[in-house]
Design a protein around this nucleic acid. Sequence first.
DNA 1: ACTGAAAGGTAACTCTT
DNA 2: AAGAGTTACCTTTCAGT
Lengths: 162, 162
Amino acid sequence: MSETSKNLRPEGDLDDVDRKIVEELQANGRITNAELAERVGVAASTCIARVRSLVSRRIITGFTATVDPRAMGLGLEVLVSVTVRSGARQRITELSEELRGLPEVLQLFFLGGVEDFIIHLAVRDSDHVRDFVVEHLSAHPAVSSTRTSIVFSHHQNPIRVS
Amino acid sequence: MSETSKNLRPEGDLDDVDRKIVEELQANGRITNAELAERVGVAASTCIARVRSLVSRRIITGFTATVDPRAMGLGLEVLVSVTVRSGARQRITELSEELRGLPEVLQLFFLGGVEDFIIHLAVRDSDHVRDFVVEHLSAHPAVSSTRTSIVFSHHQNPIRVS
DNA sequence: ACTGAAAGGTAACTCTT
DNA sequence: AAGAGTTACCTTTCAGT
């Protein structure tokens, strides 16, 4: 009954069962509740209650299929760094919201530092990159400069509780 | 029966049904086959065959739960740009594989251009960033320089067929 | 708060058209 | 590719611990 039997919440306020569930669902988001329960070592009824709690607490924020961009005809990925004009700082939010809505944009990092954004794009080809930069960045009054780098490869890891 | 009735495969060789399936499964990876079939407008038996085909062709590469790093005790995200010493180019692969295995690493972009990598980290706090950089980057003989930027916000979009 | 069993529902498979 | 019918399994609930 002591607090010392609980860890000093080293990672959020999840216990071992929650963490195992999160780990398994990151590795396979389509696993059935029955199998998840077995892997985690709790009853199916317990497991489904835990998963629902994790979702309602917004610890798990969603379930998605991961798709290969090349299979969708998007053979080129690039990272575009954007610096905003110092006189146009207040327009960063407006610009970022515009960018978020564009289909080429896979990810948008809103940064502190020299660069204000990094945009991760998946596009058909280099012409498509140029069109994107010209149309949405160079033409925008808030944008000071951009720098585009080709992504040779891209790896994504699950979040690990370590 | 003519080729003209098929589009000039504007995005891979997926038809409208495949594309709708991919779209729905990115939005909700845990949708049931019956509901997916209804939304896409095909029979359940057709739908499950399509999904399996997409997975076996590696167009859909997996299903995952998305997790809030903050809920896992990882309250700080940063992007670290890494430049490799010009005399140590051949060690990039070795370094990237080492980095991929680290629990703090969410994403790794292997780049062409001035910078060789960008590492997306989720960490507890700024001490954790420093430890990571010192331990895994500065100490590495192939690393020439690093630059760390705080991520204020991060958005991720599904891949859209446009 | 977790478990286990029972009931109901749904998915998956096969065959046929 | 669709539909029907069968099987099997999964989800859900609830009472008990």
